[in-house]
């Protein structure tokens, strides 16, 4: 699944979020309690684009899904467990990656070990990073090693992003899993 468009597009993160919002007529906005500061940029952008934003709770969001109009986009933001859990629910409702933007905040408190070159990358927010050492794209997991004090960064193939965006599946990285 493609959460962080930076990963797929190669453009800057802002450009991609901009592109995502541009296709929206309205935006359902869901932010985990206490994390609001982190998504002020999204709200600002939506307001610049004159997109109607509705803030919803998890329950409201689930109820909305049946009746959501074409052109409605979803934005969710929260810590790792929250976002991954919600994504699973959303995908099971048939929401596609085109319709969803999610940001993981404050989740990556741990460094990320690059599976390809063993470099320990500094902690960053987000589900995908590029290894500082070898440049490989990595999926940040919650598979944690105490010994290395790092989570595993699994190598991501360009093919995976294309494939996953066409046919979203619960990722390897589910709350139940990693």
């Amino acid at each position: 699944m493609m959460r962080n468009r930076t990963a797929a597009g190669g453009g800057t993160r802002k450009d991609n979020l901009w592109a995502f919002l541009q296709c929206a007529h309205s935006l359902l906005f869901l932010c985990q309690d206490g994390q609001q500061e982190s998504c002020s940029a999204v709200l600002q952008m939506a307001s610049d684009l004159q997109i109607a934003v509705r803030t919803v709770t998890v329950e409201e969001l689930k109820n909305e899904l049946g009746s959501a109009k074409i052109g409605t986009r979803l934005y969710v933001c929260g810590d790792y467990q929250f976002v991954r859990g919600l994504e699973n629910v959303l995908f099971s409702f048939g929401i596609t990656n085109e319709e969803l933007w999610s940001d993981v905040t404050g989740a990556t408190v741990h460094p990320v070990l690059c599976a390809g070159c063993y470099h320990r990358n500094d902690p960053v927010a987000g589900s995908y990073i590029h290894c500082e050492m070898c440049g490989r794209m990595l999926e940040v997991s919650n598979h944690y090693s105490k010994k290395l004090d790092a989570v595993m960064g699994y190598i991501v193939l360009p093919e995976q992003l294309v494939f996953k965006s066409e046919e979203p599946q619960p990722s390897r990285t589910t709350p139940e899993g990693r």
């Binding site: 599976a115 997991s141 598979h143 105490k146 010994k147 899993g177 990693r178």
Partner: peptide, 19 residues
């Protein structure tokens, strides 16, 4: 990855396995 899983308890090794 053995490099990554080295030193881990059985439970932590299996976190990636769904369910």
């Amino acid at each position: 990855s053995l490099y990554f899983d080295f030193g881990m308890p059985f439970m932590d090794i299996h976190t990636p396995v769904p369910g």
